[in-house]
Design a protein around this nucleic acid. Structure first.
Lengths: 349, 349
DNA sequence: TTGATCACGTTAATCGGTAAAGCTGTATGA
DNA sequence: TCATACAGCTTTACCGATTAACGTGATCAA
């Protein structure tokens, strides 16, 4: 248990016969200290293998230079690329990241936020779980004056900022394209509508259908979660209802994959028997047969904007006015969501 | 800039007219303090919304209860699931994780390790970059008596532990299966051989070919990196050589995908014209056409073992003897790496 | 009655930094 | 010539916890 003690400022100070404050200032390039002394201090620090102690620094300076992040999942296309962009942007701005994973569990999410507050992170970026209902913990964060930015999956809490993609607009674009392609019987396999991404995508679906004057069969709207399982069971529910739509708008990429699996199982051909589009994608999508057409979520932008926003908030503190930034989406067309006419021709052939 | 000051032990102490040490002990459930007092302290702490200050705690206790992790990438199937399992196992053991991403950049890796040491993490789990050559930083870690576990991508450094998958054995199994399936012209699109995963998989390939007495055409071995691009260019190199093999063993899943892309481009049919197997996979693989057969890397086990090992090392400190744990692999057979005979039949049909 | 033991706390020191204010010697300007 | 300024350090507090060492008063056995 006898760890070799780490080298401290005092160790360096002793060796040079100066005070430890001199060393501290020299290492930080403070103008109080002469060029000469500074160079000397840095040299000795190097020789001794000095490594600063962040705990001590954070304690005395009352900040951590760290941004806390809470996400529901890592091992998902969307989140892993989002996280990577957060790390990049933070690194670029000389901030550290303290990442935690709630595993879609609200209680775990709460614990992680407590931990991050105990770490005295300078700000917090949170993407809530599917089941998060209680605002209390977030209000506690706000009351502590810790800047908070919700990212993608948000919650309406006073004093917090939000970064989302244009879920509603993206959904509208997707549905309108489907309609333009000749489909009228359009179903939606949606997620939880208590959470913004589920709700707004559903609203977009409703809005587009309404704009074009299309009826919605109640059987065509299925709400579940955001995973592959949910897509699978959503499809099966539609299939068993006996009132199959021509087209499905899936709330997420994994949900669309679940549809693929289920459709293959019962022999429904995509896009010939049933066409589909979804929200989100993965790098590997181009290798799928058929490759899904999708509403692109710009994860790199989302992560960058979230980090920039939290840093801005940290910098301005009290004067900062919370913002809601909505990042626009684009449609990416691959092998699905194709014109209905061509669908008929190929199936006739 | 006037943050609301956080509640401290002294605040609680003042309110109850006890010493702050009493409060500290009470909150930690120390037997020195009576049941009654403890309950009272906890109640007041709750009321005041006390959040411990980890910086202060870490400083005075000289540990952080945190494991530092350095990985080269996040947005990859392999790493994102690996990371998720690390988080889970750490959470289960009440450790925090400080994750950093080197982006395959050795200099960034070094910086991150310095940062983690400055955070005084209790131990370090590292998966090195493709380009890491210099052991110095790792030796520095060891000399500071900070437990270090290499995971998957390792480096031979005295005093460190290693957790790897059985790269060599997995490769042998894969190649032997290909041979059993009737293939003799077997190529390897490999990664960097300076790094263990590249080297060991290549060795496995050589060993299996040797065991079965098969010749290796020098043109059949291509070394590049571990990404999709490398697979693409690796295939193209084979293709242009005019001496196409019947079968490819790809060093990673992304490399295999690169092969898919290139093969599609030049009209080579997989698995009919060219069959393939690779090391590693992704959850989405089952949706590929054809789905890749692969050597399964048990990421969940890998992450769990790495965390368990580092915790063991942290606990035993000096008495701990570094270990090398090799996790076994399994072959998973999907639509590729099929018997050559069936290949011929289908192509004749 | 004594002195040991125990339950329950308290005091003092310390972790390794940072911030603010104080001290010295030399140069400068009026 | 003397106050002023400034460069370049040092001294003193303090951040918010933990650890070690040290009181008390009550209880209890001998």
């Amino acid at each position: 248990m006898n760890r070799k003690p780490h080298v401290t400022l005092s160790d360096i100070a002793k060796q040079l016969n100066v005070s430890k404050v001199t060393v501290s200032k020299a290492l930080r390039g403070h103008p109080d200290i002469s060029r000469e002394t500074t160079k000397l201090v840095k040299k000795v620090a190097e020789e001794l293998g000095y490594t600063p102690n962040f705990a001590a620094r954070n304690l005395s300076s009352r900040k951590s230079n760290t941004i806390g992040v809470v996400v529901p999942k890592i091992a998902h296309f969307f989140f892993s690329s989002l996280i990577e962009s957060i790390y990049d942007e933070a690194f670029y701005n000389n901030f550290d990241i303290a990442l935690t994973v709630s595993q879609e569990n609200a209680e775990r999410e709460r614990k992680h936020i407590e931990t991050l507050m105990a770490m005295r992170v300078d700000g917090l970026i949170v993407s809530i779980t599917q089941q998060t209902k209680d605002k209390a913990i977030f209000e506690k964060v706000v009351s502590r004056d810790v800047p908070l930015v919700f990212m993608d999956r948000v919650m309406p809490v006073d004093g917090t900022s939000q970064v989302t993609v244009d879920d509603r607009g993206g959904a509208i674009k997707a549905i309108e394209l489907a309609i333009d392609n000749g489909y009228t019987k359009i179903a939606h396999i949606g997620g939880f509508t208590e959470i913004n991404i589920g709700k707004r995508r559903y609203e977009g679906y409703l809005e587009a259908m309404k704009r074009r004057g299309l009826e919605i069969d109640p059987d065509w709207v299925v709400h579940g979660g955001f995973g592959e399982d949910d897509g699978y069971s959503g499809f099966m529910q539609l299939y068993k209802s006996g009132r199959m739509p021509e087209f499905i708008f899936a709330v997420t990429y994994p949900v669309a994959l679940g549809v693929y699996a289920a459709a293959a199982e019962v022999g429904v051909k995509i896009p010939d028997d049933l066409d589909i589009i979804c929200f989100g994608s993965a790098g590997i999508n181009k290798f799928l047969k058929p490759a899904l057409s999708y509403v692109d979520q710009p994860t790199a932008t989302l992560g960058k904007v979230a980090v920039d926003l939290i840093i801005e908030h940290i910098g301005e503190s009290d004067e900062f006015l919370p913002k809601h930034i909505e990042v626009p989406t684009d449609l990416v067309i691959r092998d699905t969501c194709v014109p209905k006419k061509s669908r008929v021709i190929t199936s006739v052939k």
